[in-house]
Design a binder for these strands. Structure first.
Lengths: 367, 367
DNA sequence: TTGAAAGCGCTAACAG
DNA sequence: CTGTTAGCGCTTTCAA
């Protein structure tokens, strides 16, 4: 626990009222309903407040009374600081912040450590609702959020939670589109880099069983979209190597690319389930002396700014928009009869990192 | 009752106690002081809680009673969404988030619109303290923070506020160091791009008067450091053109660079008071067909990741560290006798965007 | 080990 | 326009 100590509160609404010889209501009204008292009296109250160093009604006491906290809680699957590091998260959060701003609501980043499961922070958060960003289906923090009697909006994952609104994109369709782009170019020998598929720390090849057991629907769907696309040209998914990384970072992806190409030197394209992973694959290619796209095609997913700068072939999703919609869904007043599901469109962005495979690679295409 | 998701609070501590036929204290203890009651009784309480859908003590009521909110407020000078867009802010926030995480404290982003001044959000925030990130000296939101009877830590600016801790870097010394690097290379005709200097929206040249009246100490100091460095080689500051931009973006900086070079085509170096501005200057140079550093030297300040990627000559400051220190200063237990001032070191990073000016440019150096 | 009592600081009817 | 009356839901001495 931190030792953050509040400085002693100098004055309260009651003490101010006593000082002035008026009722507490009057002081309260001076702040909350200026039209309920005479202007001169109000001025007198406010002036006395300044003199006594009274900063206005205590926010927590007001929240208790009015039953609203004026803030939205944000639950991330990762450590809090991740929010500021992953560009896809950053884009989402910028949109969310925009929505909060517009509604005059605060945004409370709830501190959860992915290491020690500790739900108290979720239970402790003084918020009017939660935004849950891309967490595992069985995340205990998420389960705690569901306990709280406040509205919740999920972004991306998990899917289909009863009574909870959700905004996301069609990951499967997006990836299918990308897959067709690659098969159209002639790629048949494809390797995959994906993000974590389950709760435990695991780095390495993800076999079919592991893929099917994934508790991250987004990853599951992106892989499924690729599988669909490859199936269309007769490529058996069982033969497609998938390398998984627990950490979502460029460094981790670089090692994953190394692992993939060492075990399968004949792949002509590396499909990554995120742009960050693709950036790692690109870096590995550069260090290995492979030129992209001549020697190797690399693709991503998300469409983050860094990807655009690297001219990456990817599937772009409207990150900022997704954040804004999530915020609006939560903050929108009015009755919701039933949970809403919003799916935003994706767009294939063909950059300079994908091209036809070399003739030699195509030659062996009956993989 | 499918009290799954909606706004109605299903049960309270009191109702649970009544249901079980025990006192409220006992239920409270079951959550907060497990050692104060028998294990079986505690189990009975917790089980009943689950059955009745009681999510544990209401956080707001608890906060009122215990006088701690479990969260830290963050005040930014800009719109909330800016926090996720400016890489310097992002680095700071990542560090701050790390500190909050470690202390189990939430981080509440306080919604302030730079347009309409509305202090209510600051007064409304249920937090145990504030971090103020780089705001104007006379920012009304900041003044409201000072009213609140909670500890406050300022990052960067404003300077020297009574009774308030501060963490920052020595902007003036950092810029002096950079200035010497440039004068050492032989630059004498220097133009400057700087961030906003005052409250009002202004874009254009900033004369000496405007510079002196700046309400952003960081900008003031960075300019002063440059002035000092130029004075050492006899360059009169009065002749150094400074172009100011209200918006801190690459686009804005690009137009500022255009403005500068149009009015002063003979400058051999553009010194920018931030990396973002420098990135804009670089872009302008590229579009104009100028090669950097052959035709033009460009420098930044901050040392954000994007700057490193662009191999920018800049002054690096420990952004993440700054955030962490700010958080720790606020959350640290123990009495503080007097306000603490922490100044973190800066480091000159010589990249590929600075070099000796062309001979022709040097020729006119008696500017 | 448990309970009774006393508020934390404020807002919202409802009267006057 | 102003005051009176009730709590919001919880924690915390202090006794039993």
């Amino acid at each position: 626990m931190s030792g953050l100590q509040n400085v002693r509160r100098p004055a309260t609404l009651a003490s101010l009222a006593a000082e002035l010889g008026v009722s507490r209501t009057t002081v309260s009204n001076a702040y909350n309903r200026p039209d309920q008292l005479s202007a001169p009296l109000r001025t007198r109250v406010l002036e006395a407040a300044r003199r006594l160093g009274y900063p206005g009604p205590d926010p927590v006491a007001r929240s208790l009374r009015t039953r609203k906290a004026g803030a939205v809680g944000l639950l991330l699957t990762e450590a809090l600081s991740y929010a500021f590091r992953d560009p896809a998260a950053t884009g989402f959060l910028e949109g969310l912040a925009l929505a909060c701003e517009a509604a005059g609501q605060g945004l409370l980043l709830v501190p959860v450590s992915p290491e020690h499961v500790d739900v108290t922070a979720v239970l402790q958060a003084g918020v009017d609702g939660f935004i849950v960003y891309s967490v595992r289906e069985d995340d205990p923090h998420f389960l705690a959020v569901l306990e709280r009697p406040v509205p919740t909006v999920v972004c991306d994952q998990p899917h289909g939670v009863e009574g909870v609104d959700r905004v996301g994109v069609d990951d499967r369709a997006g990836m299918l589109c990308l897959a067709r782009h690659l098969t159209g170019l002639g790629h048949r020998r494809i390797g995959v880099l994906c993000m974590r598929l389950g709760a435990g720390r695991y780095d390495g090849p993800a076999d079919q069983e592991r893929q099917l057991g994934a508790t991250y629907p987004v990853q599951r769907d992106r892989l499924a979209g690729l599988r669909d696309g490859l199936a269309e040209v007769g490529v058996d998914w069982a033969g497609v190597p998938v390398i998984e990384r627990f950490l979502h970072s460029v460094d981790a992806a670089e090692s994953a690319a190394a692992e993939l190409l060492t075990a399968h030197p004949d792949v002509s394209a590396i499909v990554c389930t995120s742009d960050i992973l693709a950036l790692g694959a690109l870096r590995y290619a550069t260090e290995r002396g492979l030129s992209v796209p001549e020697d190797l095609t690399v693709t991503g997913f998300d469409g983050v700014p860094e990807a655009a700068r690297a001219d990456l072939t990817t599937v772009r999703q409207p990150l900022l928009e997704k954040g804004r919609v999530a915020g609006e869904m939560l903050l929108e007043r009015g009755e919701r009869d039933r949970p809403r599901r919003v799916t935003l469109p994706t767009e294939l962005v063909v950059g300079g990192t994908s091209a036809e495979p070399r003739a030699a690679q195509r030659f062996f295409s009956g993989w």
